[in-house]
Design a protein around this nucleic acid. Structure first.
Lengths: 374, 374
DNA sequence: GACTAAAATGAATCTCGGG
DNA sequence: ACCCGAGATTCATTTTAGT
């Protein structure tokens, strides 16, 4: 690769997202097929690129070039260089068709993931996390010459440092028993009934488990979003997208995989809407102003509020501000001021006297929402 | 899947390994100091280079405190290109002074590890494994914007595809309760008594845990081998090398770190052989989140759950929460809410309809564990 | 001292929308 | 583009303060 300067392509002007026909499979080479799609039409890309050049690199060999097994220096340069050119080319297309607020996931192993990560950064993508898929049942290292290769790596990236992206924080936290979802995911490999077979042998050598795609799509897309998988294979991405109420576009050039994929997706059942509803992060929920609680009578002006340890006290005023001595302000501002902190969530900081002890004013907001929201 | 095409090692002629004076610290820039060392004199290199974190402004914790971030000059690079040049230069020196049968370890995070991995391959190193250090107690993501960054990555590489290297397979298997050591290692971050302090504050912002170096050195060196750490810091590598009867060379340019390191290594005691077996750190029993059962298909979203007497019913949602009417939450929270109890073990409270009657969802968890834990 | 509650802290690319 | 204010946000562990 060498010492290429970082070239961070920046979009000159805002690009309007484009609606596109989805739930379909494009037969052909992923670079050629992506090239036919319009700019900014995809909400998320999930890619599981090949890392042997038999599949991906042929196009990028020098004209008439043939690998000479003897000339090792040239072979090495050509091999890594070809793979890098292949990666750079499909990533450039991916970047073009991805919406400004979209994000991309790429999965790989140590054979190729460092090339991919470097190319992502060089193209201007901004890495948000690297995720470790920790396999609960990996294949052992039979010869005992290395550590058991028990994981694969996924990279999650946005369009740039300041780009927005979808992250369903609360849904992930819920999925993980009310603890933040971490960057290491323990999931079994794809086997058993889930593993697709053709004539008794596995239909695809690297079929990914649906549970992996389930978590990726649940975390980073909204219902109705369009998900593109440029290396579709047997269509795990499509099947899970359908199940989760997302739309999908797959690109694949092997007829045998396409056949299996379409059959599989046809048979997949969408979850009904109630099951699809995910825990909303507080961001995006209908907002309730503290003043609303006062004017609707949930909290009387004059009520005294305090922190859990009754160290500070404030009085609710008719306009929804709090007063402490001669000072007054919002629930957040007063909480921050009293603690000498840069910020404070007033909803959880302030409490009111209730039967059985102090309760946070956030409980009142929940009560209000239950009674007043559809 | 296939492996990337052969990348060949090439040494024009055999280089005779050289004996060198060890157990000493070289004060200065790592590239300049390595340049002074002869060819093929080092058995193993462990490197913890700057990560190039590119942090923005201050980050505040929810309770108000400020995160003490890495803001040292040694972690600042103008561009990705300048970081790549730095990496390529020190790796070229590392490769030169490393014996033909030696190996190299480099640790990093997603900020830099893809650059490092690419540079290693470009220099001709042959990656043997990537190892995931899964932190048992990482710092959370305070703002809820991404997945908790709960791991770091290490790359282990030999001089070339056909090069030999040291791997103490049996020692690793023993250390791991007679199971092959995997590529993911669960270890706590460095804190408590082990964390070196100066004037009450941490002596180095990124001190690595000794348990990590212990496993690396035990796996890939023999007693008496010379280990080089070009980014010595406060000398974790030297201290563990001394403990394990390996020799060490450290390179460091910050006087304050050097002072602490020398004092520390002076105080380190070599282990006698019987003590070598003590360092076990595989604590933590398998824990399964309810959401895992949903995303792995053990339980379908939409499934109805109920208590033994069918008094209460709830529906499983896609993110692993339960919904009852308009309310929703974790299996534990919903169980508690419905009963008006302060807490509830959702695993035993909730049941699903199965052949022969209701079964607790805990039975599914047991099934999952039997199938997926080694 | 013993026990309990509170505070501190770790390689972190950590808000968002309106004016 | 910047500025400002409302509002959302944390896990495991160790150390210190308090009873």
């Amino acid at each position: 690769m060498g010492v290429m300067e970082r070239v961070a392509p920046r979009r000159k002007k805002a690009i309007a997202p484009v609606e596109i026909e989805a739930d379909r499979l494009l037969r052909g080479d992923c670079i050629a097929e992506m090239a036919k799609l319009p700019d900014a039409c995809i909400d998320m890309i999930f890619a599981d690129p090949p890392y042997n050049l038999q599949l991906g690199g042929d196009l990028f060999r020098p004209e008439g070039g043939r690998v000479d097994a003897v000339d090792n220096d040239w072979d090495k340069f050509d091999t890594l260089g070809s793979y890098d050119r292949f990666t750079k080319t499909w990533l450039a297309q991916a970047r073009r068709i991805l919406k400004p607020n979209g994000s991309i996931w790429v999965i790989g192993s140590y054979h190729n993931i460092f090339r991919v990560g470097t190319a992502l950064q060089d193209e201007g993508f901004w890495i948000l996390n690297d995720i470790i898929w920790r396999k609960s049942n990996p294949m052992p290292n039979f010869k005992g010459t290395r550590f058991t290769n028990a994981h694969e790596t996924l990279i999650w990236a946005s369009q740039g440092e300041d780009a927005k992206y979808t992250f369903n924080y609360k849904a992930m936290k819920t999925l993980n028993d009310e603890l933040q979802m971490r960057s290491d995911w323990v999931l079994p490999i794809c086997g058993g009934q889930e593993r697709l077979k053709r004539n008794g042998t596995k239909a695809h050598p690297t079929q990914k488990p649906e549970a992996l795609l389930y978590r990726v799509l649940l975390a980073c897309t909204k219902p109705g979003d369009v998900v593109l998988d440029p290396f579709f294979g047997t269509g795990t991405t499509g099947a899970v997208a359908k199940r989760l109420g997302r739309r999908w576009i797959g690109i694949e050039r092997e007829d045998s995989y396409i056949e299996v994929a379409m059959e599989r997706i046809e048979a997949a059942l969408p979850l009904d809407e109630s099951a699809l509803t995910i825990m909303q992060s507080a961001k995006g929920q209908p907002k309730v102003a503290f003043g609303t609680l006062v004017e609707t009578g949930y909290l009387q002006p004059g009520t005294e509020l305090m922190d859990t340890r009754r160290r500070w006290r404030a009085v609710v005023r008719a306009d929804g501000s709090l007063s402490v001595g001669n000072d007054s302000g919002s629930i957040h501002k007063m909480g921050a001021t009293l603690q000498g902190a840069p910020s404070c969530n007033g909803w959880t900081f302030w409490h009111y006297e209730a039967e059985g002890g102090l309760k946070p004013i956030d409980a009142l907001r929940q009560t209000y929402l239950l009674a007043n929201e559809p």
